[in-house]
Amino acid sequence: MNTQRRHLLKLSAAMLGGLALHRPALAQTVTGPIRIVLPYPPGGSTDAITRFIADKLGTALKTNVIVDNRPGAAGMIGAAAVATAAPDGRTLLFTNTALIQSPLIQPQPLYNPLTDFEALTLVADAAQVLVASDATPARTLPEYVEWARKHPGSAYGSLGVGSTGHLYGELLKRKAGINIVHAAYKGDTAAIGDLLANQLPVGFVSTVMAKTYGDAGRIKVLATLGRSRVPSMPNVPTFAEAGFSGFESIGWIGMLAPARTPASLVQRLSNELAAIIKTPAGSKMLIDSGMLPRGTTAQEFAALLRRDQQVWQTLVAQSGIKAEG
């Protein structure tokens, strides 16, 4: 009996010790409201997705989650606000590939994308599409190139300096031998507005905007970036299919926290966010927006960021974009 009692006492002590050991990790959770910074203006698919996730995250963590739109400097203003925020899990960043691209272009980067953030999850892969206004006669990418040759100095729009559209627009300019001028916009809504008003000949926009207004016959969808066609627009060729290689890398949307956020918090937030993305409602929203839902681990997203740094650095060099100032 004494032997059995001693065994039970040791087992109880071990269990209590284990609980004590893990108590800091269990207690390490987000307390208070959470702010998700989106470095783009309200409106558009990314804003809608951010608000969807904010609502579901608030329910999961039993706290208020608000979306704070902070546009400017090709996404760097909002990203920098998160980079300098307290690493307590209460300030998060919902952003896209511009997180990597913008510092490669801007003369004075406001943050280092690989050291100033903790990756949480890759939300989705997101291609962009080149579309033309109703006033632009081109209906295919080759037709647009021929039109652009006859109209030197015509503009093309993108979602900011150093964005995916900007990089690929300059690459197309070089490969096709056309003289086109970049016009930077702060979001899809502004670019689409000028396309619909025939103030912008062509522009790179999100797949959901391209599909919405393309299906309505208000813009013409020319070609999509990426290695394969967008499932929601199966009749739209890729740049490669239209005769232009080198436009295969696409963008993404994802969520991050400030650097030095405790590992237990990163894990908790990553798990909650990935679960939201993988719900039927979350996946449907992303697919309807022309994206491929992912919901990766924090480690997988961090690895993607490191690979992207090399990919976009190469494309910056190929596009010929030079930092000014």
Results as ranks from 00 to 15, higher is better:
Gly187Glu: 08
Gly157Cys: 07
Val161Ala: 14
Lys211Met: 14
Arg268Gly: 05
Leu172His: 07
Met255Ile: 02
Arg294Ile: 10
Ala259Gln: 00
Thr297Ser: 14
Tyr185Phe: 15
Asp288Met: 08
Gly320Asn: 08
Ile66Asn: 01
Pro87Ala: 13
Ala259Cys: 00
Asp134Met: 09
Leu304Met: 11
Gln267Met: 04
Asp308Gly: 03
Thr207Ser: 11
Gln199Asn: 11
Gly251His: 09
Gly160Cys: 02
Leu304Glu: 02
Thr189Gly: 01
Ala323Lys: 09
Phe52Gln: 08
Gly290Arg: 10
Lys186Leu: 13
Thr314Leu: 00
Thr136Cys: 13
Arg51Ile: 06
Ser206Asn: 15
Leu172Cys: 07
Gly177Thr: 03
Thr95Asp: 12
Arg218Asn: 08
Gly165Trp: 07
Thr136Arg: 03
Thr279Met: 00
Leu110Gln: 15
Leu114Thr: 12
Met291Pro: 02
Asn271Thr: 15
Thr50Phe: 00
Pro39Met: 06
Ala223Glu: 09
Leu93Cys: 11
Ile49Lys: 07
Thr84Asp: 04
Ile287Tyr: 05
Leu16Gln: 05
Arg6Lys: 13
Ala73Val: 08
Leu104Val: 10
Asp188Gln: 08
Thr46Cys: 08
Ala210Ile: 07
Gly72Cys: 07
Ala317Tyr: 10
Gly290Gln: 11
Thr279Asn: 05
Gly17Ser: 06
Ala98Pro: 01
Gly162Cys: 11
Glu241Trp: 13
Val82Trp: 08
Ser154Arg: 11
Thr97Leu: 12
Pro71Glu: 07
Asn2Phe: 07
Ser133Asn: 04
Tyr213Asp: 03
Gly43His: 05
Asp125Cys: 01
Val311Tyr: 05
Met15Lys: 05
Val266Gln: 02
Ser264Thr: 14
Ala25Val: 11
Gln128Asn: 14
Leu93Gly: 11
Gly32Ser: 08
Ala303Val: 03
His182Gly: 05
Phe301Ser: 03
Arg260Asn: 14
Pro231Cys: 13
Gly58Leu: 07
Ala323Pro: 02
Pro201Lys: 05
Ile250Gln: 12
Val145Leu: 13
Gly246Glu: 13
Thr279Ile: 02
Glu248Phe: 10
Lys186His: 10
Leu114Tyr: 03
Asp47Leu: 04
Ile321Ser: 02
Leu286Met: 08
Asn198Gln: 09
Pro103Asn: 14
Glu324Tyr: 00
Gly282Leu: 09
Arg227Ile: 11
His22Arg: 04
Arg139Gly: 04
Gly282Lys: 05
Thr238Val: 07
Thr207Asn: 10
Leu11Ala: 15
Ala138Lys: 06
